[in-house]
């Protein structure tokens, strides 16, 4: 329960930033922690606990995504999703204009790109993030650099407009 207290807000936030609704994210967080408990003997202290937790949560999210067979990419779907609307306190948080802009760009990205950027920002190494996404390190780097390139080009565009 101590680990749950410590890590659940971060994992919850990570999942919601990855397009899961609050209800879905809560389900995945619970499932991830229960798996951590069930597979505690398989944990090897070669990696960090945090990376292991993100790996489990990411795998559940990817599998659930496949099961749900939906990809939240366009704004219409975003708006039709009640949990993801601005009514959710998490989304009511006053983000600066720049951060709000990044959030908007991330939401429009492919799931793979978004996850790569977010895992890197969560502090996972390239190896850990690649493992969490089920990719090789070189494949992860390619995805991350492309996604960052998209973010950069968006910033460049916004800069030109201003």
């Amino acid at each position: 329960m101590i680990l749950f207290e410590k890590y659940s807000p971060r994992i919850l936030g990570y999942l919601m930033r990855n397009g899961a609704s609050r209800v879905e994210a809560e389900e995945i967080v619970q499932e991830a922690f229960l798996r951590v408990w069930s597979e505690r003997r398989r944990f090897r202290p070669t990696g960090t606990f945090q990376a292991w937790l993100y790996t489990i949560a990411s795998h559940i999210l990817i599998n659930e995504r496949k099961r749900w067979s939906r990809e939240i990419t366009d704004e219409q779907q975003m708006l039709s999703h009640p949990e993801k609307s601005d009514n959710d306190p998490f989304y009511r948080v006053s983000l600066s204009q720049t951060v709000g802009r990044v959030k908007g760009v991330l939401e429009q990205m492919k799931q793979e790109y978004r996850m790569a950027v977010l895992l890197a920002a969560e502090g996972l190494s390239y190896q850990e993030a690649a493992r969490a996404m089920g990719l090789s390190v070189s494949a992860y780097k390619t995805v991350l650099f492309r996604a960052r390139g998209l973010l950069r080009s968006h910033f460049a565009e916004a800069g030109r407009k201003e």
Partner: peptide, 14 residues
């Protein structure tokens, strides 16, 4: 700027 903004976004958790 992009990296800093993403990190700022990640620091907000529910």
């Amino acid at each position: 700027e992009a990296v800093a903004a993403v990190q700022q976004l990640v620091s907000h958790n529910p």
